[in-house]
Nucleic acid binder design. Structure first.
Lengths: 213, 213
DNA sequence: CGCTGGATTGAGTCCGGTCAAGCCTTGTGG
DNA sequence: CCACAAGGCTTGACCGGACTCAATCCAGCG
């Protein structure tokens, strides 16, 4: 899969650049775990290619998807001593990894500290947007916003959904059945058109924007 | 109102200390707006005393409360060019304020950059916790978690709720009526006991913890 | 081909929202 | 000190949107 570089969601270039230079290159196969919830958090990851999902589990099995990450995004900023989410590769991925301690050693250079702050701030903004959606939007609005966001990130005309319905549901705080029904409904209203369950195009942008509220 | 200092939620001391030194001291009366949504964001605020609420409005009037801030917390870190939330004083407040540009001038000194990063990271963690709750918890679990969190922050035996039911509802993604019903229900189960609608004590901590999940 | 796992669809239920009274606290003015 | 008004909170009856459970469909793949 080839994705457009998305400047408004990507982390500050300084970090990505640095990690390209000093980071260890790693690859993960589709479905593989990149790090696990509650593991010691000593790495920061920069996504070169592929799509990654972060998830958090409650004790009784309920699951919340934190976010989906695309090439250019930095993963692992939100972390204290232990990872609070686990991260899995939704597709085959290439990732640059550096130790936190190595970053600390570079502190002060290249405005790195400021860049890390900026990137974390942006992550925070994304999370706040997510929060607003979970708290105050209807099922239909949630699915509409989601499809809009994915379509915007993808950039291409034929938008591919790297995640399944269960992942969408756990991201939106819905069940898989409700997501499916809303998708069907949006298709019925001629707003989107699904070629397969993982591939669609937006047929009426203004209507989609309006529904996303 | 006197509140215990809460070290696990307070921002890195370095910032608070700095702001005590160079920040302009301001006071706000109960109900006053500290800054407004979409205003230019050029200030960072450190809360000395009182309680502050941040809110975000959707176009159709739906409201989401971002968070409640207590003494020792730093407000305004999440911000890009414009404030994405508005902040209001829930009680009379004393706040230290510094310009972002002044902070920038001090960049590099006192590990300030690192401290700002740390504080933002902590804010992100709080937001992620909030997210998990909105997405995957039932009304009863939401109210239970909320009362637990407030009680923990307050520290005292007689816990005071500086916010009204509407604020709780908008924080939890519920209606005022549902919040009220859940409170009544928790009281009926002998888990909490309300002296007035704004003052309660926890009678059975383990049960409250269990419900908060 | 048939198997397998994800996605869709349908029927029925329930949790939380809506609408509408009523209650209690607080504050104000006679 | 009481009467009254006003706003916030609670309670009740009802409704509807999202969940649950279950059947079916469909695409990918051996």
């Amino acid at each position: 899969m080839t994705l457009a570089y998305s400047p408004d969601t990507a982390a500050a270039p300084a970090i990505v650049e640095l990690m390209d230079r000093v980071g260890l290159k790693m690859t993960f196969a589709k479905g593989e775990e990149i790090f696990g919830q509650d593991e010691d958090a000593d790495m920061i990851h920069s996504l070169v290619s592929g799509v990654v999902r972060t998830t958090r589990l409650l004790s009784d099995g309920r699951r919340q998807v934190g976010d989906f990450y695309y090439p250019g995004d930095v993963i692992g900023l939100e972390i204290g001593d232990a990872y609070r989410f686990s991260a899995e590769a939704l597709t085959d991925c290439v990732i640059r990894v550096v130790k936190r301690s190595s970053l600390a050693a570079l502190s002060g250079k290249d405005n790195l500290d400021r860049a890390l702050w900026e990137a974390t701030r942006r992550e925070l903004e994304r999370t706040q947007e997510h929060l607003l959606m979970l708290g105050r939007k209807s099922a239909c609005e949630k699915v509409a916003s989601f499809l809009r966001d994915v379509a915007q990130r993808d950039g291409s005309d034929e938008v591919s959904l790297p995640m399944g319905r269960q992942d969408m549901a756990d991201y939106l705080g819905l069940t898989i059945e409700t997501v499916s029904r809303m998708v069907t409904q949006l298709q019925g209203s001629q707003i989107v058109e699904f070629a397969t369950s993982r591939l669609f195009r937006v047929t009426r942008w203004p209507a989609l924007e309006r529904l996303a509220a």
